[in-house]
Design a protein around this nucleic acid. Structure first.
Lengths: 290, 290
DNA sequence: TCATTTAGCTGACAAAAGTCAGATAGCACA
DNA sequence: TGTGCTATCTGACTTTTGTCAGCTAAATGA
């Protein structure tokens, strides 16, 4: 046990706890106790089942009930029985509740923006936050099939291209590469997946159709989530999607300057094949029969 | 305002808030309300003036008084009037209080250790935490003159040598460099300073005496605190210390592979001079008359 | 069908946290 | 020396949070 490392974590913990306290204080400014504000926020963030909210916030069922009743008489939410199980209730925000929720959101966002504004190197700060949130949060990573023109998909692709530019000795220019039209990575010809950790995109992968075979494109995993076998899970998804689209073979190209990618494909049972396109960047080519 | 960057900060904030809540829960396990535990911890961590603690924890004076009284009847602390101003009181832990404080410390340390144990890349995690704590915490950085054999000084030096090894194309071996004996950086011949941010060492700088001139050695600033003019403040300290030791000139050596260091010395009014030692690593030499 | 379990609600408390108006004693400065 | 200010303490609150037993209505399963 390294004493200074423990000091470092403890210092981090203290500053961050203080920061959380400041935000709580600002929440209090809206004239509602913190408990009620938290329930409102949980619902606003998409939780609707009362039991789920209660569990998430760690509240006693009696207390929860009273908080809900309070917000209800404020006109901020309405509860209805769950159609599948009438003992359970689902809570939904009224328009007034939605407005109030957004006011809380604005407070949080403002605070976040302040942090960004006051830091000289926001990229490093954000990367550090991602790393810590991934390390601390044991939350499951969810996959979602999206249109590659979805803003979250575009953000992933920007990160991906930025990383290629940094890692390739010769740099990387998207336009010189055979940039697949976004449309080729949409059903029924292809597919595009992103991975979300608590709402934040942390990876992407595309599948482009070429008749009976499919091509894997744009596999990227955020630095903060590497080592969590996300790439493997993406490849599983892609194989499943390719089968569903009727492909019998998958191909992909990559570069020997990305040794972890090359190692991954070998590990997952891909075989190296000859060059199958004239894209200037790749120098290693793989194939896998499904 | 970048929506995804805000998402990243908010996600970080949520996970970290949950983490803080977990620790609070474990504090509750010692059968004392959180408020009292916080007061005990503040005193244990070195705060003694009641007003200072109250201000730090943001407590009402009445509430603070009652919490102190509670801990006093538990036999954990004793308060005495401040000798300089008898209206103020200072609180100090009794042996029982110290033991109880340490029990809380153990809980925190255990939690920190768990985090370290469960992460594949602890260096990156800790660096990220330092960065965030420095960005968030506006706390003043305190300087302390210490013996260079103090464990905190040694830790700084390890970081410093590690960084040189990474940055010098040829690597860096302390033993090949003219390693000043620690004893030459202690009064009355020299001095050694460290900078502390909330207890964590974030920089160091040494002064070695050579008769009428002094030599600046081992200036290092933690990556997490760069851009905060810490190096400039170190050099101020060193100049003051050198004057006090009766030196009329300061010299130092550095390397052109550390351009930010070279730029710093130019900016602070140093002049480049000829080589004044036969250390294999430096290739740039500076002098400043006091 | 009927006992059992489950989700949520209610009433009755209790503990914790926060607020506020004096009271007291010491300090500071004219 | 007196007046005003300060730090702390005390008593008398309120609000917020947490707990618990008992209730109802719905689901579950023999």
């Amino acid at each position: 046990m390294n004493a200074i490392d423990i000091t470092r974590i403890r210092r981090f913990h203290r500053t961050v706890t203080r920061e959380a306290g400041v935000l709580d204080q600002s929440f209090l400014g809206r004239g509602r106790p913190l408990g009620a504000a938290r329930v409102l926020n949980a619902i606003g963030r998409g939780m609707s089942d009362v039991a789920v909210i209660r569990d998430y916030l760690g509240l006693d069922s009696g207390l929860m009930s009273r908080l809900l009743r309070g917000l209800e008489t404020e006109g901020l939410l309405a509860t209805t029985p769950n159609p599948g199980d009438a003992r359970r209730r689902i809570a939904a925000l009224t328009p007034a509740g939605q407005a109030e929720f957004e006011a809380y959101e604005d407070l949080s966002n403002e605070r976040a923006q302040q942090l960004l504004d006051h830091h000289p190197d926001t990229d490093a700060l954000l990367a550090a936050m991602d790393l810590i949130a991934s390390a601390l949060g044991q939350q499951a990573i969810a996959f979602e099939e999206v249109d590659p023109r979805d803003p979250r998909a575009i953000w992933c692709l920007e990160q991906y291209f930025g990383e290629l530019a940094r890692r390739f000795e010769t740099g990387f220019d998207v336009h010189l590469s055979k940039d697949p039209e976004a449309a080729t990575m949409i059903a029924p010809r292809g597919a595009f997946f992103i991975a979300l950790s608590d709402g934040l995109p942390v990876g992407c992968c595309g599948l482009k159709g070429h008749g009976h075979w499919g091509e894997v494109k744009r596999l990227w995993v955020a630095p903060s989530t590497r080592g969590m076998k996300l790439a493997t899970r993406f490849m599983d998804r892609i194989e499943t999607a390719a089968c569903a689209l009727g492909h019998d073979t998958l191909r992909l190209d990559t570069n020997s300057q990305l040794p972890e990618a090359v190692a991954l494909y070998h590990r997952l049972g891909w075989t190296e094949i000859d060059r199958f396109n004239d894209d200037p960047y790749p120098d290693v080519f793989f194939e896998k029969r499904l």
